[in-house]
Structures are given as C-alpha cells and as structure tokens.
C-alpha cells in the first residue's frame, strides 16, 4: 500500500513544528561575559573543553550523535539555570551524557555508571554522579527530551530530499548530494564552540546546511528561503550563526577522528551492497577502546554513512579524486574497507 507524497510532507511539517515547539520551550544557553559564564568561575575555554570531552566519551562508548547532542543540551541548560562551580564542571558534563544515554541509547548499549566512570578516566565516585543526576533532573524538572541540532539536521534533510522545498537537479545523478553524516560531524564540532552554543539547534542546523547548499547547489537560494520560513529562524540570527560556523569549520579540515584504521574487506566486493556507491563498504575503527557493536546492521549503515561523508570530502577537494560521477560497477582505486572487529 502506497501513501501519497503529500501526506509524508504533512507529517514532516508536523514533526518540524513539534520539534520547534519543544526547542522553544526548553532551549537555554549559558551567558558568557568576559570569557566566563556569567556569575561563575567557568571560562569559555573550560566550557568548550568539557564539551569536547563529552564528544570523546560519546565516541568511546559508541553513542549515536543524538545522544551526544542531547547530553550537550542538558549540560548547557543546567549551566544556564544554576551558578555552577568550575570544580563540578566535568561532573556535570559526564552526568549530562549519562542522562542522555539513559534516554536515547538501547538497553544493551547502556553502560553501567561504574563502567562509565572507570573507562572515562575521570575521578568521580558513582555516588557523586548519582547525586549530580538527581540535581540535574530536579533543576530541569525531568524535562530532558528536547529537539537538538542533530534532530533538525535529520528533519531538514528529509524535507530537502523529499522535495519540499524542491531542490534543483543534481550535477551528477549518482553523486551523493546530501551528506547527513558530514553535517552531523560538523554540528558536533560546532557544538563545542561557545559562540555557537548561543544559537538554537534549529539555527545551527540550518546554518550548516546553508553553507553546504551555497557551495553545491546553483539554485540554493529558493530552497534556503523556504527552509528559513519553515524553521521560523530569524535571518539576521542565521547569518550571524552561519558566519561563525563558516569561520570555525574552514579553519580546519573537518574529517573523521584521527588515527582511523581501515582494513580491506574482500567479502564486500563480491556482496555488492546496493546502498553503497561504487567504492564499497567503509568502516572506521578509532584507537580508543571500542565497544563491540551489538547489531551488524548498524555497522553496515554506519559504513554507508561514512562513505557518504568521504564522498563529500572528495567533492570538496580534500582528496582530489572525484569518484562521485563514476558509472555504477566501475573499478575504483580505493579498495572496500571494513573494521577488523565484527
């Protein structure tokens, strides 16, 4: 049974509306004054450092990006609601991530607080974390489930690819045009920046997408204005956010975490995964002690997403070869790669 496209669009519009309402209700960011969070001894550098640490932890524990983003939102909301002391900053950070994990991750992925403490290398006791958990829940009235920048990336991506607003014809049909994996990575990167933490998730997500649209789509403006209207974002706010993000992201070539290890997987050549474009399967193993993925499917999906990300990097000229336009089934110099642990 097929359902009409318009119904899907209506659903997406309702979803966006709901996400925006949740964000309006819950979003809060700490105010910085003289490079410190107002009324505290926490510097913007320490704030950024704590978020980068949360990013590190969430990769160590193989959390999905949504969990990290939710953790950061809890972290920022708490810092905006109470006057926290610098010595508790990391305790707040790790507890925010634990709360996000409990909400968002599957039961079998959820690490025990003890494991979390041991593997993260922080020197808090479980009692301290449990106490902080209670404080955060009480201060935020248990109302943690907000919409984050990552959620908005997914919604905008769905809107753009479902043709509402309709996007102009791609340059190459087979070229992966939208790369949520890279966008998500960019959002994660931007979330650590204290200037960008002043913007709502919807604004940040739209800014990142606009940067990409400007680069890649000749007729980006109509799409952009339509998204802007749908997302109810102020254009002045968006331009400020976009410029800051652009500065941050162009300052460094954003790639996947360093020291990634790739292993050739002959099996996937024969298998010919249809989801993956010509290059085959890509995977990534970071040096950090990784948790084994419980679901093989998740791994494959991730691989596809990472491939998308690489395709985008090629497109941006980080790697000169452009494999995007290759006809299906053609030979590429890059062998399909797979993580060594299954």
């Amino acid at each position: 049974m097929k359902y009409p496209e318009s119904a899907e669009c209506r659903r997406l519009a309702a979803l966006l509306e709901d996400a925006l309402a949740r964000e309006r209700r819950l979003w809060k960011a700490p105010v910085f004054k003289n490079h410190r969070i107002q009324g505290t001894d926490i510097s913007s550098f320490q704030h950024q450092d704590a978020i980068l640490w949360m990013d590190e932890l969430s990769q160590l524990f193989k959390f999905c990006p949504e969990t990290f983003a939710l953790g950061v939102s809890i972290f920022n909301r708490l810092l905006a609601s109470v006057k926290a002391q610098q010595k508790y900053l990391r305790c707040i950070a790790i507890t925010s991530l634990i709360l996000a994990e409990k909400i968002n991750e599957e039961d079998e992925v959820i690490a025990s607080v003890k494991d979390f403490v041991n593997q993260s290398g922080c020197n808090f006791s479980t009692a301290e974390i449990v106490r902080m958990e209670r404080i955060i829940l009480d201060k935020l009235h248990w109302d943690l489930n907000t919409a984050t920048a990552i959620d908005f990336i997914h919604i905008f991506h769905a809107l753009v690819t479902s043709g509402q607003p309709r996007l102009p014809q791609r340059r190459h049909q087979r070229e992966p045009f939208f790369h949520t994996a890279l966008w998500i990575r960019q959002v994660q990167h931007c979330m650590a920046c204290h200037q960008l933490s002043q913007f709502k998730g919807s604004t940040l997500a739209l800014a990142i997408i606009t940067l990409e649209l400007e680069r890649a789509a000749p007729d980006w403006f109509s799409v952009f204005t339509d998204l802007l209207k749908k997302a109810q974002v102020e254009s002045v706010e968006l331009i400020r956010c976009k410029e800051t993000a652009d500065e941050l992201l162009s300052g460094q070539e954003l790639t996947f975490p360093p020291n990634a290890l790739y292993i050739f997987d002959g099996g996937s050549v024969a298998r010919g995964h249809p989801e993956l474009a010509p290059g085959g399967a890509w995977g990534r193993v970071s040096h950090a002690g990784r948790r084994r993925r419980s679901q093989a499917q998740r791994k494959e999906k991730d691989a596809a997403e990472y491939y998308d990300g690489f395709g985008c990097l090629y497109d941006q000229g980080v790697v000169p070869a452009d494999i995007g336009g290759d006809p299906p089934g053609s030979y590429t110099p890059c062998p399909p790669l797979q993580p060594p642990v299954s």
């Binding site: 634990i98 009692a127 974390i129």
Partner: peptide
C-alpha cells in the same frame, strides 16, 4: 539502585511523558 542512579526506564518514561 544506589549504584546506577535512577533506572533508565524511569528517566525515559518521565522525560517522554513531560512532552
């Protein structure tokens, strides 16, 4: 459970129902 803090089921239930 004192070791684990608040059960994830409780946190999930409350944070979802709040919205």
């Amino acid at each position: 459970k004192t070791e684990e803090g608040i059960p994830f089921t409780a946190i999930r239930e409350a944070s979802l129902l709040k919205g």
